[in-house]
Nucleic acid binder design. Structure first.
Lengths: 127, 127
DNA sequence: CATAGTAGGTACCTAGAGGAAAGTAATGGA
DNA sequence: TCCATTACTTTCCTCTAGGTACCTACTATG
């Protein structure tokens, strides 16, 4: 196996079973993949260290793991330049770019509703 | 604390830092919260056992945990009927319903692009 | 000679989500 | 009397994402 990067080998481990969006969640949304995709989507092609500095607190190990996973899933394109200090560039693929409307919807929902969630929590914790 | 249900107490534990959609991911997308929200969104008000049967393989412990979390976040409304065998009904809240366009976008992306991801994986694993 | 800088790899450890199995209160029915 | 049902709770265990820390090759620069 290629791995340390790939997730569930089986395609239908149905925690989802009849929930058509669960597979997408598995591919696009996790603690670090979302910020990485967002950064590449917002700021264009970037080098490893740029991403590392932009995404605060991510460790190089995890950054490598997530980038490999995204590359394997076809969402990110990696370009290696065999120069003196090695140079690697990452950019979002066309498939990755197709997530744009999804990100827009998400950002909009966040802007409108995040504080409602916070209010709900306060109310719940009070009762 | 209320808990075993609440996540990160601090609001800005910035794994995200300047990624506006990371908080939403934390609230809406996880292995089980997504299928639960989807089931309530698709099939309307349901009892605990109905959800348990619909969402294959979920354990009662986890179902309770996720439902409590969703209730606290204001996405789900819980109604308790103190009857002989107790009866509890769950339904999506108005805030939860506002996720509908998001789910629609997700479902559409899945329908169009999931097999492209699969192709990319096959190609990657071959090279 | 030593250091810095790039893009990682590796070994080890922790924390938290989740799974398995059993228990609980209350009551109606066989 | 025993069993079933509902909506959980509790205990114990596993598994994996992620964190910490250190190592690698290569070269330019002081």
């Amino acid at each position: 196996m290629t791995d340390a990067t790939s997730r569930s080998a089986a395609v239908d481990v149905d925690p989802e079973a009849a929930c058509p969006i669960a597979p997408v969640v598995d591919i696009v949304f996790s603690r670090w993949t979302t910020p990485i995709l967002w950064a590449l989507h917002e700021y264009g092609r970037q080098r490893f260290v740029e991403l590392e500095r932009r995404i605060t607190r991510i460790t190089p190990k995890v950054l490598t793991q997530r980038l490999r996973q995204l590359e394997r899933d076809g969402l990110v394109v990696r370009t290696y330049h065999p120069e003196v200090p090695p140079r690697v560039e990452y950019e979002i693929s066309e498939l990755g770019r197709s997530l744009a409307p999804l990100f827009a919807t998400l950002a909009e929902w966040a802007a409108v509703n995040l504080d409602k969630v916070e209010e709900a929590r306060v109310a719940y914790d009070a009762g």
